[in-house]
């Protein structure tokens, strides 16, 4: 990935049916300097956001198991949508590597990273670096130092 992100301007969608988990993710992202954060309480709401071409989406952080539509459904919707070609996707799960079939499916739909619950801020940061690139890490460290 050679593209340089100005991460402060990135638009991030956070999807989790647990309000507290969603809240914590948003607080971490805010701490890292992100300004544009959209939140959805389930996959169904997230699908609406994905389909809405007026909404800019650079990164989606979504829980896997949710009512209505799960994380995999959201991931598929993004990968099928030509307007979302550059959108990155981090899947949040508490299942570890047990559900191999599901992980294989997610890999087929080009998931960019997994974040396993429970996670610490540092782990979230690492995943963001993996997905967004090293330039992002430099900017982020400057942000955290300031």
């Amino acid at each position: 990935m050679s593209k340089t992100y100005k991460y402060k301007d990135l638009s991030i969608l956070v999807v989790d049916d647990d309000a507290m988990v969603r809240n914590i993710l948003i607080q971490f992202l805010t701490k890292f300097g992100f300004k544009e954060i959209i939140e959805c309480k389930d996959g169904k709401d997230a699908l609406k956001v994905v389909q809405d071409s007026d909404i800019k989406l650079d990164l989606v952080i979504s829980d896997w198991e949710m009512p209505q539509a799960d994380g995999l459904t959201v991931l598929k919707a993004i990968r099928k949508n030509p307007r979302r070609g550059t959108t990155k996707f981090i899947m949040v799960t508490s299942q570890g590597s047990r559900e191999r079939i599901k992980i294989t499916q997610a890999a087929r739909w080009k998931v960019d990273a997994y974040l396993v619950k429970p996670f610490k801020g540092e782990m979230l940061k690492e995943k963001l670096v993996d997905v967004l690139g090293e330039d992002f890490e430099k900017e982020l460290n400057e942000e955290l130092a300031s």
Binding site: M20, V21, I24, E65, F119
Partner: peptide
């Protein structure tokens, strides 16, 4: 899954 969430509440 529930424990994963609860631990996020705690550690987060």
């Amino acid at each position: 899954h529930e424990f994963g969430n609860l631990l996020v509440h705690i550690s987060g």
